[in-house]
Design a protein around this nucleic acid. Structure first.
Lengths: 343, 343
DNA sequence: ACCTAAAATTGACGCGCGTAAAAATTTTGT
DNA sequence: ACAAAATTTTTACGCGCGTCAATTTTAGGT
């Protein structure tokens, strides 16, 4: 309700009848002052609504309360969703998340890291672009800033990696598909940006071997992050060419699968596991929209919350440890199969 | 290649054989120094890779080079896409975008504005939550910080509003649907967060009157940002109850439509404009995934680039004008109809 | 080579706050 | 009530840079 405008902490301290260093102490840790003075400050705070100048504060602290979050492509709902979870967790812990998207481009990723370095964050959660990441840039960044990698691993970089168990994704879908019908053909991009895609192909080959089935891998061309369109076009030509040797398609990820479903619809192929169906389509990730495709997509789901939660936990643990760990750890969460109508 | 670590501008100036004020001038405007000294600085820059401490810089400037971007829900690809465009434009102009999502919650929107105020941005691009926005908070914020509203208007707030012409969206879809088949029933949420939804309903009623058709509005319950699920559930019960009096459904937005398509598929209703189809479904927004629904969605498309571009232009114009305009302007862009298979 | 305008340097102050040391005050335990 | 412990106050410096006034150096024209 106070109408005065406070310019700095000095003024605010005077108005609350305290000295500036005490007030400063309060802002760094409200519990570090006597309860009675804490109350006085908080009352004055309501009355005058003062906030310390964030730039002056950060200039004088070696580590800020900023947490950088970098994702490869924010317009992908998968990353939007995981970023949302991470942001919330940071806020709950009293930190200020700074969200940045690399927009699928190496330059932008490098720029983001540059900007972040200037922001002197307490730590960074980085989901790198993957194959097209500039390894040197990332390595140098990780040397300067405590960094936890998530979603997509780059060997040896960052203090820890948290992600999903790609092999387990594929094991679960392949197992399910094999025991419920024809063995799956694997559908993927030939040059995926994300290294998880390679792990999934390899896991597919191994899983098929275990089942004693002969693998069929269909790799389609395509660059960038327009996975749905790549999947749609690729499916059209693969179907036309008869590349799928069985009636079951296992897509590397849900966004490709969305494109495949679109192509199937356009070709009037019925997708599902019913007797009147032409094809089964399954996939991985449990993209937020997978529930709403037609038919709804059978997929292996990331444990979003676990990945987000553990990433943040790990980072804060590291920050408390002075920004480094004795050794790099890799944590993989198991996905869970979500059976819907498509397979 | 230089291996030294530069601590501050003083050191860097010494290493490049210049004085600190000159170097400071360079960083504020590279063209303000003699070309020869500019070259010297830039050579040293490559060698030693120095960046002025961003906190010290911002502390001493009244207005920073930060541009705040606030969207109501970043996990919605529509906002992710428009945010991506805006970010890029800000970077191109030499500003630093700071992207924030309100996660669909009033508290978060208020927090975001609070944080932004502390960041002393040169300007803010704000897409408010709408109905559930805290008008008082937004008004106070706009008084302190040069703000341009986009996507969703709040009467009188901010220095300008840039959005799409909701009436035109609906006019185009209704016209198209009426002249190509049965007149549409309107499908919407009863209590939409976004004020655009109300404008669309009103435009529907007017358009139907113009066509001499009797309007049918189906409003479904539902809170939050899970529009697809709300649409799916709502469509199931509306279809079961026979609420749709014609064979044509016009959804308030694409995400609801995605839910409707899902429900139709589950009920084995064929959607499209062919003779063997049961229903036509159309919508508004041209959501990034609308191309890939089954069938592909007929919709009216936002002019994303125009909205993003004009918003940024307007903001920078305003910043150059000292942060205020003589009077508030509202700019609406016309959408364009995208006819696909669903209607 | 000389003059002038333009540019760079010197020296200094201020921004708002973190933080440290010493002194003064308040609280706590007995 | 009194000494010890805990907290607050006082005083002062430093962070890295913007910015200003006064001065010196440089560049461009003749």
């Amino acid at each position: 309700m106070g109408e005065q405008k406070i310019r700095n902490m000095e003024e605010f301290a005077a108005l609350s009848g305290l000295s500036r260093p005490t007030v400063s102490k309060y802002f760094n840790d409200p519990d570090s002052v006597r309860p009675s003075t804490r109350k006085r400050i908080e009352q004055a705070l309501e009355q005058y609504d003062f906030r310390p100048n964030i730039y002056a504060v950060n200039q004088n602290r070696r580590l800020t309360k900023n947490i950088g979050i970098v994702v490869p492509y924010l317009a992908d709902p998968f990353f939007a969703e995981i970023a949302r979870n991470i942001e919330q967790l940071c806020i709950d812990t009293g930190y200020r998340p700074i969200l940045m998207s690399s927009h699928g481009q190496t330059d932008q990723e490098n720029d983001n890291l540059d900007t972040l370095r200037a922001l002197k964050p307490a730590g960074v959660l980085l989901a790198p672009l993957g194959r097209i990441s500039d390894k040197g840039v990332i390595e140098r960044f990780c040397r300067d800033v405590p960094t936890v990698l998530f979603d997509s691993n780059i060997e040896g970089m960052g203090e820890a990696f948290i992600g999903s168990d790609n092999a387990s994704f594929v094991d679960q879908t392949v197992d399910y598909l094999c025991r419920s019908g024809e063995p799956p053909c694997f559908f993927e991009m030939r040059t995926p940006a994300n290294p998880n895609a390679n792990k999934r192909r390899i896991a597919y080959l191994e899983a098929m071997a275990r089942h004693g089935e002969s693998p069929v891998v269909v790799s389609v061309e395509g660059d960038g992050w327009g996975f749905e369109e790549i999947g749609r076009r690729g499916a059209h030509s693969a179907i036309a060419a008869g590349d799928f040797k069985t009636n079951t398609i296992l897509c590397s990820n849900d966004r490709l699968a969305i494109g495949v479903l679109s192509a199937c619809y356009e070709r009037e192929l019925r997708v599902g596991r019913g007797p009147d169906c032409d094809l089964r389509v399954a996939s991985h990730d449990d993209h937020p929209f997978s529930r709403f495709t037609c038919p709804a997509l059978t997929t292996a789901a990331h444990d979003y919350k676990a990945v987000a939660g553990r990433s943040v936990e790990t980072l804060f643990e590291m920050i408390e440890h002075g920004g480094r760990f004795r050794e790099r750890t890799e944590t993989l969460f198991k996905p869970y199969l979500v059976v819907r109508a498509s397979a």
